[in-house]
Amino acid sequence: MTVLGPEEATARAAAHRQRLLTWVGPHLARRQRHEAHPVLDFLFTYYSESPARLLRWHAGVGHSVTGDLAEERLGWPMYAQGPDGSVGLDVEAFRERRGTSAGWVAGLLQATAGRTAQFGCFGLHEWAMVHRATPRHGAVPLRLGPAGTDAVVESHRLQCTHVDAYRFFTPTAAPRNALAPTRDTQAELEQPGCLHAGMDLYKWAVKLAPAVPGELLADCFELAVDIRVLDMRASPYDLVAHGYAPVPIETAAGKAEYAAAQRGFAERGQALRARLLAVCDAVLGPAGTPTPDRPTP
């Protein structure tokens, strides 16, 4: 156990809060004004972590804190005081409460990390979600109009591998997909080139809290923000009024721009995936070692 002194722990907690207030602050202001944001609200609605918990810094497994932060954390779930008086993650309590969930997450992360990334989807999942249907973001116009949007879907091969994107396909678009992802096949199909798999690293970091250090959670959140922006810039929606130039994936240039960004996100995602797996190893046992909560993938 690495013990963090009061000054270091307080500084890291303050830096974490300031870093995430970049997005949390404007979100709370918009919420107070009852103002929707078609791009960034997703990070606080689909991913349901509350702003208050997002701003909360954890030292993570293998670290404990002293001073005022230690006293505060004694009242938080899955924390315990050690013989030296410092306070850190109670690994046994974590395993009891989150072990099964963490084991599933570890299996998914390990399977995804070992798979070859694919870069040929071109973000068509967003187009498939409005094919021959009313757009989800009714206040935002379609860049090519309804007929033009449908034509893009119908002139491309859909190859979405992510269940939580595919499940929002319209009834007319779903049969056009090369695959039919389900929750049961998620670990078999999820691959590191998928934008939704990259965004979901934030979701897995939240599920592994408080074992995940705040800096890793913030890195995952920032990746989710960057991916979400590309996701919507490449979507059928016209977001110029919101400050987002389109990535026109219906063109060769747009496809190239999308795939290049996707490769960069995949590289960032793999690094974060490895760090999240290290957290899983610390609380559940080394990768590949069967435990009641972590079957061998």
Score class of each variant (00 low, 15 high):
D231Y: 10
A234K: 08
G243A: 13
G214M: 07
Y237N: 08
E222T: 10
A224C: 06
G214C: 10
A241L: 13
V212K: 04
G214W: 07
L239C: 12
D219S: 15
C220F: 11
D226T: 06
L217G: 03
V240M: 07
R228Y: 01
V240Q: 14
V240F: 04
D219Q: 15
V206R: 05
G243Q: 13
V229W: 03
V212R: 04
V240I: 12
L230F: 05
V212A: 07
R228P: 02
E222M: 02
E222V: 05
I227F: 09
V240K: 14
S235C: 13
P213H: 09
L230T: 11
H242P: 05
E222C: 00
V212N: 03
V206Y: 11
A234T: 03
G214V: 03
A224M: 01
V229T: 06
L230N: 05
E222N: 05
A209W: 02
F221G: 00
A241P: 13
A205L: 07
L239W: 04
K207R: 11
C220W: 04
P213R: 14
E222L: 02
V229R: 09
L208G: 03
V206I: 11
V240D: 11
A224I: 00
L216I: 08
K207H: 05
F221E: 00
C220A: 15
R233P: 13
R228T: 10
E215N: 08
D219E: 15
R233M: 13
G243R: 14
E215L: 06
P236L: 13
L216N: 08
L223T: 08
A241W: 06
A241Y: 08
A241S: 15
A209R: 14
R233Q: 15
E222G: 00
R233C: 14
